[in-house]
Design a protein around this nucleic acid. Structure first.
Lengths: 223, 223
DNA sequence: ATCGACGGGATCCTATACGAATTCCGATGG
DNA sequence: CCATCGGAATTCGTATAGGATCCCGTCGAT
């Protein structure tokens, strides 16, 4: 019937729903009603059902029998928890990857840092954040542990969503963040002790968490 | 017809399929044909489809459009990778949990160690392994990071499957493993440096991996 | 006034049916 | 003997329909 462009309707439905969750169109607690979505997306209920199942398995929505799905609750706590897990895994992945980082990689990584500096000058939070993620991804792309890479990617994506929902810019963090990057690169370049690399990478990420928590506490105080 | 015991058919189907994958009935590469399974389990194709979707999202099976699902390939490498990831997370979780471990917990944990010793005497590999898992689960049940706990549980389950497919008993490992447990408990009891606890717990788990790899290398040599 | 029973509406769950894509296998020609 | 092509069988993908379950507002009894 429809000129399916190589992807199934279930696939498209999944992509659409997920996109809406990620970009915040469907806020936390939003109910996903199968019938309504099916009508809106011009498909039957089956593709929607399957899409929702996938979203459930990946933790984007919670599902109760005979009651339906709703977007998983998102709060500061879960962001912090996910970030902490991410910090631990990313630290280890960075240490594992270090010996496999090429000089070309180092070049590219320093270029990214320059871009981050520029983004900071222009107060472009989005760009800064994107470049930051690119930086770390480029490193642990060299990590030989595939399972670890996949876990990282999954958690990263989850954190991104949470971030877009709750993030407030942390002004003091930008400059130190770039400095920490440079330190990390120096360690990698020098072939430093894996454990040292791991801990530096971990702390780097955890700093973002603590910075956020401090800012949050500050806001609490103001009220 | 619905003698449903409170669970949906999709749920049961999912449980059955998963069980069969976990216990090795369906070996790696085994094709899961929807029609056949639906007939066998006395349900329609829809519950089977959804069950397979969930299994796919959780990484138990791979799925290709218009071609169906087959049990994900399992090899030594992926077991090693998952175990390594597990070691890192479990190490960190153990350190986080340490301050929350009660004396009652310590008591129970030492009891488990005794049971492990008994299982070793009787060469009961299955029991030994179960108790070992119980030991670590009891500890990181006290970990305050919920996200981390869930990740651990998921990876643990995956590793269990892989293990049942490829595991060979490592005879020299039992005694040292119990000794390492005791050392870990002593550190927790003494309120040691979190980083030390983390690294001991991590190494403990990684020892299993290296022991397995050595044994594998030995077998290679024999041939 | 509060609590429990009851009914309507909404929503989900499963079964069946048919169309679409893929694969398998034999026939045909080189 | 091998490569290629076409058709049938297999299997997946989606639509539709009816039954099952839950939620919520209403009503009556204590």
């Amino acid at each position: 019937m429809t000129a399916a462009l190589g992807v199934s309707k279930q696939e498209r439905t999944y992509a659409v729903l997920r996109e809406r969750i990620v970009d915040g169109t469907y806020g936390p607690g939003h109910r996903l009603v199968i019938d309504a979505l099916a009508r809106e997306l011009q498909v039957s209920q089956m593709p929607v059902r399957e899409a929702i199942r996938r979203l459930e398995a990946e933790g984007w929505v919670t599902y109760v029998r005979h009651q339906g799905a709703q977007v998983a609750p998102i709060d500061t706590a879960s962001w912090t928890e996910a970030m902490t897990t991410l910090a631990v895994l990313e630290g280890f992945a960075t240490a594992l990857a270090a010996p496999h980082v090429t000089t070309a990689d180092l070049h590219a990584l320093r270029a990214i840092d320059v871009e981050m500096g520029a983004a900071m000058e222009e107060m472009d939070v989005r760009s800064f954040s994107d470049r930051n993620q690119a930086f770390h991804e480029r490193i642990y792309a060299r990590c030989p542990n595939g399972h670890l890479r996949r876990e990282l990617a999954a958690i990263q994506e989850r954190v991104n969503t949470l971030r877009s929902s709750i993030f407030v810019y942390i002004p003091t963090r930008g400059r130190t963040s770039i400095a920490e990057h440079e330190r990390l690169l120096a360690l990698i370049e020098a072939g430093a002790d894996p454990l040292e690399i791991e801990l530096v990478a971990r702390e780097h990420k955890l700093h973002t968490v603590t910075a956020y928590e401090q800012r949050l506490a500050l806001q609490e105080e103001k009220r």
